[in-house]
Amino acid sequence: MNWKTRPLVELAAGRVFVWLDDEVTGVDRRWVAEHHPGRALLRRVDPHHGLREADFTAVEEWLQS
């Protein structure tokens, strides 16, 4: 699990949040699903390309769902 996962969930305090990071893994997604009662989108960003249009589109679609 990423060292950021637990502090982000604590900071979110049950609120909806989006996390875009180049180190997000399935382990982080599972931990958040088990420990965070609110909605959360964890999306891995390619570290070589940074944020791309597809990332913004995915966030927008998730927020609208």
Rank of each mutant, 00 (worst) to 15 (best):
T57C: 11
T25V: 02
L8W: 06
A33R: 14
H49F: 14
A54Y: 07
L20E: 00
A58M: 13
H49K: 13
R39D: 15
H35W: 05
M1Q: 05
L51V: 15
L8D: 01
G38S: 09
S65M: 04
E34R: 15
D28C: 02
F56A: 15
E10D: 14
L8V: 06
L20G: 01
L20T: 00
V16S: 04
G50C: 04
P47W: 07
W31G: 06
D22T: 04
Q64V: 00
E60Y: 10
H49D: 06
W31M: 06
G14H: 03
H48Y: 12
D28T: 05
R39Y: 10
D21N: 11
D21R: 05
W62E: 09
E34C: 09
E34H: 10
A13W: 00
L63P: 05
G38N: 06
G50R: 12
W3K: 12
T57A: 15
E53Q: 14
A12M: 02
G26I: 02
H35E: 08
N2D: 15
E34S: 12
P7A: 07
D55H: 09
L51T: 14
E61S: 14
H49A: 15
A40M: 05
E60W: 09
L41I: 06
L8I: 07
K4C: 07
T25K: 00
L63R: 06
A13T: 04
H48F: 13
M1R: 07
D21V: 09
L41M: 13
G14I: 05
A13I: 04
E10Y: 02
P47K: 13
